[in-house]
């Protein structure tokens, strides 16, 4: 699969970062690995951009975080979705689905089934 364009990814960064956390709390490295795994390695964004996004989403009240001590003895910041963040992810997922359906239909030369986003 081709690597996605950087600008395209930036526009959906919140959803990309929130989605792996819907499975449960995780630290930054695990979030990045999960993004890679779920996207089939298609999302090749610089790893460092995920951390400012995590901080920003935490400030927005969509995530909470706490320090834990890893087996290696290093301190590790673990992030978890808040109820507010979970709701935001659900909304974004629905909007994306509508948009994706509409684009899919458009490219296939047919009319979209639902109202486009």
């Amino acid at each position: 699969m081709h690597s996605m364009e950087g600008e395209m990814l930036k526009g959906h960064l919140d959803m990309i970062v929130l989605a792996p956390l819907s499975a449960g709390p995780a630290h930054g490295y695990a979030v990045i690995q999960e993004i890679r795994r779920r996207s089939g390695q298609a999302f090749d964004l610089p790893e460092g951009t995920v951390y400012p996004a995590l901080h920003r989403l935490e400030q927005a009240g969509w995530l909470t975080s706490r320090w834990v001590t890893a087996e290696s003895g290093r301190r590790r910041r673990v992030y978890a979705l808040t109820r507010h963040g979970d709701r935001a992810l659900t909304e974004r997922r629905a909007v994306w689905q509508q948009f994706s359906d509409a684009i899919g239909s458009l490219l296939a030369g047919t009319r979209p089934r639902g109202r486009p986003a």
Partner: peptide, 23 residues
């Protein structure tokens, strides 16, 4: 190299931090 250039990362953190302090 995979993580990215430190200055570029620092800029993103600084912008987020400024927004928080503004609030």
């Amino acid at each position: 190299a995979n993580f990215g250039e430190p200055h570029a990362i620092a800029v993103q953190f600084a912008v987020v931090s400024l927004a928080q302090q503004t609030k």
